[in-house]
Design a binder for these strands. Structure first.
Lengths: 236, 236
DNA sequence: GCAAAAGTGTTAGCGGTACACCCATGG
DNA sequence: CCATGGGTGTACCGCTAACACTTTTGC
């Protein structure tokens, strides 16, 4: 970092937000994402990712969480840096470098996310025309979510604090878009996962009441955290 | 990206560079990385990652490749975005956001990398005191390399254009820091890998001359590339 | 021919998948 | 008592680790 003329690129932080929503009540849930309508040029009126310029004294991750809260009224249950997009021509007129984060919201809270005229939730795999390169960015975030769900334990972040194994399986099925064997899923989760029984059961089901679980990684020693808590791994 | 007051943070691009070097001739190779001595405040005289401010009209990846070339005189055989570090206090006095890349160099070329008084190669796992948060950054890049080598085929980027299976195995062993079974390694590579026999053999060995291979992913259709060519995957 | 690395064959164990089956509850 | 999802048992398959063995060269 030699002290030379300042960079003229402007730094923005944007966030791709995912939550589960059922199209019709009782139906299987799917991934949705909120977009905001641009109220300024360039691309006025187009739908875009929530975000804004990076304030000089705010951490990157804090900025991502703040814009997330501004557009949904909610706090993320998971938040991780995705990638930094800096193509010279991605914004007409000026150089903009965007540090993009991706986030998961608990579905119970997401149901009461604030909705204004300039915020719109859309299914994550059928997007409208988006401003700038934001369609690519969301596609990449989706790919990352789908990849990461397979080897990591982030799926619970799309549920509330307690959940049944069937609900957790629904999350995996929605994200991976394929059915999973309930029997094997149960064992895999109970074995390698940090799932803990709450002792409670979900009431009001038409059939046998299922156990409720909490995500609580018992095997992890306090303070023993991976590098950067959200370290990266790159696909072949 | 609303049009509001410009961000005051300055944008830098840095690169963590890895190459294989043998400590003593004939010995097993290990990972080394080049550092540059800072010639300005802050942290004047400290060793740091190669890098610099982002020029307004240069792509991020191009900037990374350029600084890499400036410090080593070489072109990378592999280059990927690592992470963006933007902590408010990571540089004293002013806010600096660094987009960091990591790179691999072919070992045959790396042997004739330029070395000046302000460039120093050090073993990647025993670093001297570094400027800013660069020690963390290198540790993270190392972790990413070690993780990625296990599920991806980037190891060949640390060798020349052709290589024997024993040489390729040495790369894996150096990166993973554990011995691998030669027999199983051979089969795994030949099965899942894009290795292609050149028809040639390495001459001058004291024993049976091994076949030379080239990395040439035959299964990959032209133009069929993964998202961003270097997509990410996050550890648990 | 002897040492050493290149290269092949064979087997055991482990984890994932498929699927048959029993359990518990509301109606 | 029946339908339905919750929950358990088990057999098979493919992959990998381990390691014995054969081949080919330089000296």
């Amino acid at each position: 970092m030699p002290t030379t003329p300042p960079s003229t690129a402007r730094l923005a932080v944007s966030t791709v937000i995912f939550a589960l929503r059922a199209d019709r009540a009782g139906g299987p849930p799917a991934l949705w994402t909120p977009l905001v309508r641009r109220t300024r040029e360039p691309q006025l009126g187009h739908w875009a990712l929530p975000g804004g310029w990076l304030p000089p004294n705010e951490e990157l991750e804090t900025a991502a969480a703040r814009t997330l809260r501004a557009t949904t009224g909610l706090a993320p249950s998971y938040l991780e840096q995705l990638y930094t997009f800096g193509g010279v021509d991605r914004s007409p007129g000026e150089r903009v470098v965007s540090v993009v984060y991706w986030a998961l919201l608990p579905s119970d809270e997401a149901a009461r996310a604030t909705i204004g005229p300039n915020v719109r939730w859309v299914p994550a795999d059928t997007l409208p025309d988006l401003a700038f390169d934001h369609a690519e960015i969301i596609a990449y975030a989706l790919w990352r979510l789908r990849t990461k769900v397979e080897y990591s334990e982030i799926a619970h972040a799309l549920l509330g604090r307690t959940f049944t194994l069937a609900e957790l399986r629904e999350v995996y099925e929605a994200v991976l878009r394929r059915p999973l064997d309930p029997a094997n899923f149960r064992r895999t989760m109970l074995a390698s996962g940090g799932l803990q029984e709450t002792g409670e059961h979900r009431a009001g089901t038409p059939h046998r009441p299922p156990k409720l679980y909490r995500y609580d990684p018992a095997g992890t020693a306090p303070g023993a955290r991976e590098p950067f808590r959200d370290a990266e791994r790159t696909a072949s």
